[in-house]
């Protein structure tokens, strides 16, 4: 547990330093658009330049950045002219809802198809699900979201369709491999039911690895949230990141990326810990 917390902390600090470096050395840093206003006098422009003068030293700049972050001040969005912390508070719940629902539905669909394929060799289900997963893997998320808008389907389901093919393919291969092991075949030959074989012999072998995939699917769902929210006009942090990218609002972008990285790292750590606990309990 302590190791995982340390990894998250180191990632945030190193990622923050990288972000601060990008912001500090990005073209246009420390230049205020108001300087282009022809009505301003030379004195006013000089005052503006002094006010937005950058810290010369990167580490000093990063120190100030961290100090403000500890006090809950993530800076102000240049494009939206609003505090970043406030923007995150408003938009994060919507994205979490989309990502959570999408990941959950994707997993449910993936497992619902992978388990019968592995346990009862349902070749028709296998063929149909494999083709469906294959096609979904070939469609860009943004196009899928556009098709959902055209057909007036609920946009949040797009994330489920992005998570589903990865879960299905991974779970199918893992379960098929586990189901073909000698002791599982022996249990089946002795007359144990499909459900019994799955619960007592296949799941204990595959459970830990399946849990490891859960963390990855959170990262996948967050990545998909950008095109989905942009195309479907959902007011989440994916849409915010896109607006920030178009407006070159680096402060906002770096904060968003770091925040999403913390969430995905926490999800990965949680799935690692759960997988480890599962493996130990089965051993």
């Amino acid at each position: 547990m302590a190791k995982h917390v340390a990894i998250i902390l180191v990632t945030v600090l190193l990622g923050g330093l990288l972000g601060a470096t990008l912001i500090r050395f990005a073209p246009g840093y420390g230049v205020d658009e108001q300087e282009l206003d022809a009505r301003l006098s030379a004195g006013s422009i000089e005052a503006l330049r002094r006010a937005s003068a950058p810290d010369e030293n990167l580490f000093l700049f990063y120190g100030h950045y961290l100090k403000r972050m500890v006090h809950g001040d993530l800076g102000t969005s240049r494009t939206l002219q609003r505090p970043i912390a406030q923007l995150l508070r408003e938009r994060l719940p919507d994205t979490m809802k989309s990502v959570g629902l999408g990941a959950l539905l994707g997993w449910a669909l993936g497992l619902a198809l992978a388990i019968p394929v592995a346990m009862s060799r349902a070749w028709l289900v296998d063929a149909l699900a494999s083709v469906m997963a294959g096609i979904l893997l070939c469609i860009p998320v943004a196009v899928l979201a556009l098709l959902f808008v055209l057909t007036r389907a609920p946009a949040r389901l797009v994330i489920a369709l992005i998570v589903f093919p990865k879960v299905f393919r991974y779970a199918r291969n893992l379960l098929v491999r586990s189901a073909a092991l000698p002791h599982v075949l022996t249990a089946r030959a002795k007359g144990l039911s499909h459900a019994g074989v799955f619960v007592w012999h296949v799941l204990p072998l595959a459970g830990a690895q399946l849990l490891a995939l859960a963390g990855v699917s959170v990262s996948l769902a967050f990545g998909a949230s950008i095109p989905v929210e942009v195309v479907c006009d959902l007011p989440g942090i994916g849409q915010l990141a896109w607006k920030a990218a178009l407006g070159r609002d680096l402060y906002l972008l770096i904060n968003l990326t770091m925040m999403v990285a913390v969430v995905t790292l926490a999800a990965n750590s949680a799935s690692d810990l759960l997988g480890g606990a599962f493996g130990r309990s089965e051993a």
Binding site: L22, P27, S219, A244, L250, T257, T264, L265
Partner: peptide, 19 residues
Amino acid sequence: LFLSLPWFFLLITVRALMP
């Protein structure tokens, strides 16, 4: 650490740095 950063977020952040 690089892999833990979400790919698409990282990509649009670096893309935004370019003109």
